[in-house]
């Protein structure tokens, strides 16, 4: 359904060997929404979780079965897998404040 193709199945952005925060970003190809979501997420993590986060990027076009397993409805969706409990946010994450709140991330002042 997306227009862009992504040859990579999984894309890990690792900033530390044992990250405290594990995030998963579901995208479909390289749509503008998905790209801006990734940019925004990285920006937040770098600012508030320096060297303590991990972002797993999953392209549903490559792994469609995960849509069911993770109950993914909207694209883009970001899931905070660790620490538990999981948190979900959908959209291009354009409001950075809300992302911090929605994913319950610590605010680094």
């Amino acid at each position: 359904m997306g227009n862009l193709k992504n040859t990579k199945k999984k894309n890990h952005i690792k900033k530390a060997p044992h990250s405290a925060y594990v995030l998963r970003l579901y995208v479909v190809g390289k749509t503008p929404n998905c790209l801006s979501a990734l940019t925004n997420l990285k920006k937040i993590c770098d600012a508030h979780l320096p060297l303590n986060y991990e972002i797993e990027i999953i392209d549903l076009l490559q792994l469609p079965e995960l849509a069911k397993d993770d109950q993914i409805l909207a694209i883009p969706t970001v899931i905070r897998r660790f620490p538990k409990p999981t948190r979900k946010a959908i959209g291009d994450l354009s409001n950075l404040e809300e992302v911090l709140h929605g994913l319950d991330l610590p605010i680094n002042k």
């Binding site: 479909v28 079965e65 109950q71 948190r87 959209g91 291009d92």
Partner: peptide, 25 residues
């Protein structure tokens, strides 16, 4: 399709490709 309103937050623009890909598959 399990949707829990309290489970996620809407931040910005999105589409429902997650659901559609699931259906299409």
């Amino acid at each position: 399709v399990q949707i829990d309103r309290t489970e996620f937050k809407e931040i910005g623009v999105y589409n429902l490709d997650g659901l559609f890909i699931r259906l299409a598959t």
